[in-house]
Simulated assay, not measured.
Amino acid sequence: MITRMIVSALGDRGSLVFLGLLGVAALFVALSNLLLPPGSALHVPIHIVALLGKYVCYATLAVALDLVWGYCGILSLGHGAFFALGGYAMGMYLMRQVGTRGVYADPVLPDFMVFLNWKELPWFWHGFDSFPFSMLMVALVPGLLAFVFGWFAFRSRVTGVYLSIITQAMTYALMLAFFRNDMGFGGNNGLTDFKDIVGFNVQAQPTRIALFLISVAVLALTYAVARVLVTSTFGKVLVAIRDAESRARFLGYRVESYKLVVFVVSACMAGVAGALYVPQVGIINPGEFAPANSIEAVIWVAVGGRGTLTGAALGAVVVNAMKTTFTSGLLAPYWLFMLGGLFVLVTLALPKGIVGTLQGWFAKRGEAKRVETSEPSPPPEAPAAGKAESAS
């Protein structure tokens, strides 16, 4: 039954095309970097590989956000918090791997703790020298925060713009907290100067390629899980809650439970994306909690196409590629104006986003072709004169 559900969810043309293009692109980037000489026109430099890996992590975050916004109607302006918490969990593991190779050569305490005259490792840092424990925390910490937050918010029936405001307040409060040096997370500077991950040099070319490929695999897995959820009965209930929450509650569905489950699953996905983001970028600091980051994620989903999953991933890559292009030249001071203008333009001209508009266009075109090619049914034959007379 489960296999049939997975095949049914991922067997449509859109999913196969998305996963196929994702796999081909990942193999091309990896092989062109490893096999082609730097002078080749098709060679992808290692810094571009790291940049693409960052885009893929953003795409995973966008898919996680689209799961709750596009299919359940929960406009979360705090998903950047879940992304950052997953990143901090990975950063803590990476800092524990530095050991005596740090500036102060302390075998236990990270450099920033030695600088701030910490005498012993805080209790919440214990266990992060273990990779399995750290990976568990990558999903568990964001999921636990989402569960506690959602439990109170959804049971109180907070919806709409009020829910969006309190999610934004949550991530802003976390940003202020993590800026404090006495929190034990590096304060303003955050966590950086990483050395190894599971024994491999973070800066080495093979490690960078491996991190990129793992990020692509996680994006594909995130998409597959989200696709299975939204095409199941559970997903149909989510859509019903999105379109008419009061009617779904009247029919007997426990709306708060459905919202809580999908919110926690989405938060765990965002945390995994943040964990993969950190070793490829090389730093995690409280700036990742900034409310503007969560708002940008909403723009990615809106540009690509809310409620399409593939559109969310595409929007994340397109918008961030534009950001990389336009923040390094003469237009750098005007990037935020361009981003806001893009959001307004998409909202007015393409309310369904890029992928949603294309899906609607192809659907109309296919319907028109079916109408044109369908042959009209022949009119009923009139009875022959002889038959009519004999009948009379």
Score class of each variant (00 low, 15 high):
V272W: 02
G87K: 02
F194M: 13
C268W: 10
M175L: 14
P376C: 00
L238M: 15
N320G: 06
D106K: 05
F83C: 04
F362K: 05
L276M: 04
T308S: 10
Y58N: 02
V216H: 00
L191D: 11
I2R: 10
F82N: 04
L65W: 03
P37T: 04
R13H: 15
A313G: 06
A273K: 02
Y253Q: 14
L145V: 13
L345H: 01
P122K: 00
A391P: 08
V198F: 07
G78R: 00
A292M: 13
I197F: 09
L42G: 09
L314R: 10
A30Q: 01
P206E: 03
W151G: 02
R155G: 12
G190D: 03
P333A: 00
K195T: 15
A25W: 03
Y172V: 00
P107N: 01
S164N: 09
T347N: 06
F179G: 07
A388T: 04
L75K: 02
Y71F: 14
A26I: 02
Y223S: 01
I2S: 14
I241Y: 10
K119W: 08
T167Y: 05
F18P: 04
K259T: 12
P132V: 09
A84C: 08
L121E: 11
L330T: 12
M5S: 05
M183Q: 11
V138M: 05
V262T: 09
E381I: 14
A89N: 12
A226Q: 09
L121T: 12
F28M: 13
R242V: 05
F194P: 15
G99Y: 09
R101F: 15
